[in-house]
Amino acid sequence: MQMDWIYALVGGAIIGLAVTIMLLFNGRVTGISGIVNGMLKPTAGDFLWRFTFVLGLFIGGLILKVIRPEAFSGSLNNSTATVVIAGLLVGFGTIMGSGCTSGHGVCGISRLSVRSIVSTMTFIAAGVLAVVIFRKLGVIA
């Protein structure tokens, strides 16, 4: 448990490499909400790279499940209603705000995009606020 921050740092570094590969080969920002959103209204020639990337996210999860299944044990025990509302907010908010943790937080901040810095500070602040409120209300543990 005390070593968790090392896993987080190494995992983060791997993500940093992954977004670098996307940039080097495809010239694109690895914004996962945007990549998924583009699949919902597919246009010719713009679907396959999105699909293979999302498939890769899933296969990465399958590999992790085999080599380090305990990584999944931390899944939250929230009520179904909470999960639905959370998903709706994440989907709606990321498209309205043009990005999420990957696109703004990792790619945007790395290139010092002011929009991404503002977005990241906003969603982290909102997250902290939400945790405080929902813990008080007993909605989340």
């Binding site: 996210l57 999860g61 999420c100």
Partner: peptide, 22 residues
């Protein structure tokens, strides 16, 4: 939009990438 995302992220404990991997 970022504010709405942050709220949902805290409520669900997942952002889009890890959600798909999960």
């Amino acid at each position: 939009g970022s504010f709405i995302f942050g709220f949902g992220w805290a409520l669900g404990g997942m952002c889009p990438g890890p959600a798909i991997t999960n």
